[in-house]
């Protein structure tokens, strides 16, 4: 399918916070209570529309365990957006955010948009981290913030799409160098400014066919 842009995301955070469930909810609109432990990197993709433009989100879901940290780190660099996830019912996952953030800041490109996500909002009775704490952490570190539930799908769309909007705005502002694929942004075959297709005398805009 043709797209105007492709944005690459990475999902990070402690193991068990619901990263893989968030991805599945976003791409397949379903919740799978028992998700297999991610031991490497897994991929998902979905098309969204922003400002009337088709945008393909390519999402890399990573392993949270310490032992895979060096592999996970190696995937930050090529991402335009990151979803940093903690579990509102487990305070330790919130406490580890600083480490995750340092890691991300150190290994990603400086323009990467980071969305902080407090997941499992459906488990209000077991909540250990107040929403205000999440908001405060986000404000302090310049992140966007949302609470989500991969189970009920609450805010899941919004989390992925708001991140994309932020990236899109940055592109409009000229902050991102969109010609450098290492930034996690690719221009699609139908984009008016692309010069990758040699269309000869046709010139200018025409809806591109399939990608790649």
């Amino acid at each position: 399918m043709a797209y105007a842009y492709l944005f690459k995301y990475i999902i990070i955070g402690d193991t068990g916070v619901g990263k893989s469930c968030l991805l599945l909810q976003f791409t397949d609109k379903r919740f799978q209570p028992v998700h297999d432990l991610t031991i490497g990197v897994e991929f998902g993709a979905r098309m969204i529309t922003i400002d009337g433009k088709q945008i393909k989100l390519q999402i890399w879901d990573t392993a949270g365990q310490e032992s895979f940290r060096s592999i996970t780190r190696s995937y930050y660099r090529g991402a335009a957006g990151a979803l940093l996830v903690y579990d509102i019912t487990r305070r330790d996952t919130f406490n580890h955010l600083t480490t995750w953030l340092e890691d991300a800041r150190q290994h990603s490109n400086s323009n990467m948009v980071i969305m902080l996500i407090g997941n499992k909002s459906d488990l209000e009775s077991r909540r250990e981290v107040k929403k205000e704490e999440g908001e405060a952490f986000a404000r302090e570190h310049g992140l966007i913030f949302m609470e989500t539930s991969a189970k009920t799908a609450s805010n899941v769309e919004e989390a992925f799409i708001n991140t994309a909007k932020e990236i899109y705005e940055k592109i409009q502002e000229g902050v991102f160098d969109i010609n450098n694929e290492a930034n996690g942004i690719k221009i699609g075959p139908q984009h008016p400014t692309t010069n990758s297709t040699l269309s000869g005398s046709q010139g200018g805009q025409h809806a591109g066919g399939g990608c790649c």
Binding site: D36, I39, V41, F43, A45, Q58, W60, Y75, R77, G78
Partner: peptide
């Protein structure tokens, strides 16, 4: 096909492994 596309990312060179399933 989407996953195949991701696997061909020369910038990040993901290490693709056998899925649990």
């Amino acid at each position: 096909p989407d996953e195949v596309e991701c696997s061909a990312d020369h910038a990040s060179r993901p290490i693709v492994i056998v899925k649990e399933t």
